[in-house]
Design a protein around this nucleic acid. Structure first.
Lengths: 154, 154
DNA sequence: TCGCATATGAGACACTGTATCATAGTTAAC
DNA sequence: GTTAACTATGATACAGTGTCTCATATGCGA
């Protein structure tokens, strides 16, 4: 964990609250709780998982959690990771180094690798078309080392 | 459209049929029809859209289309685009220039932009870890121009 | 504190993708 | 061409995810 963890957390909260007020939304109890649980979670999570946690701890309803997840996404506090199964996966950005994912088509395991800022060359193209970029992900797919070896053994 | 369109189409069909026979699957009427409709479609499509087309034209049932889409995926004729709304999106690979996608979080519309080969710098990193890369996609998300304007009008 | 706009919870709902199973179609051997 | 064995199909039911509705509760500016 980095030294600036506390202030990074605060920055995220400020980012979120700023987004809310700019959008005419309230800083309600439910939004605070869902925000905290999303930040507390240090892996990937789905809306359903977050909803279960928030309901068990604080009786926040499923519908509300789904609604707040959208706010978190739009504020840039969490991002959607580009997975292929039928759930939406998210991860928070706070205290994380920018990274991308490579996924094995057989075992569906992930490899994370650092962001090398290669996206910068794409930005002008999208911004010229009026697209407001909130995030990006480089998504590789293929076969991981383990699965390649298993195939050889057959 | 490129000059080699016809032969490229044939190659795709051979690729598909080869996959089927290697997997012990039959080259049935339904599989031929779904293959043709997937190739005919020159944008993104979801299983549901494909199912509607195949049912209206040829009375192929929804369940069958979903099953054939899996075959098409595994044979490499179509690929899943790494997207986040609740449908799976596919596009066929035949006759397409490499490109990536940006998606609006509100209206879910896509912008396509050309591949600038920025992924090349990531390859050594993944290959060093034994990951066999079969493809990649750069995925941007944000708010499109139209949706930004709609927010302002409120 | 009051009044109004926004948020919430509970449940119903729509939709996607999968499973089941009886029937139909395909293939290969003869 | 027939037959037998296997695979594919269609119809339907089902589970799970995410959205919508609406009555009630809460937050916020005056």
């Amino acid at each position: 964990m980095r030294l600036n963890t506390k202030s990074a957390f605060l920055q995220e909260r400020i980012k979120f609250e700023k987004h809310l007020s700019l959008s005419g939304l309230q800083i309600s109890r439910a939004r605070k709780i869902v925000f905290n649980e999303a930040i507390r979670n240090h892996g990937h999570f789905t809306s359903e998982e977050l909803a279960k946690i928030c309901f068990n701890k604080n009786k926040i309803s499923r519908a509300t959690v789904y609604r707040v997840v959208k706010d978190l996404l739009e504020s840039g506090v969490i991002r959607e990771t580009a997975f292929g199964d039928k759930h939406h996966h998210y991860e928070h950005i706070y205290d994380e180094k920018p990274h991308h994912h490579a996924q094995c088509l057989r075992c569906h395991e992930f490899i994370e690798f650092p962001d090398m800022k290669e996206d910068e060359r794409y930005r002008p193209y999208l911004e010229k078309r009026g697209f407001k970029i909130l995030g990006h992900e480089m998504h590789f797919y293929g076969i991981c080392e383990k699965c390649q070896n298993q195939q050889k053994m057959k």
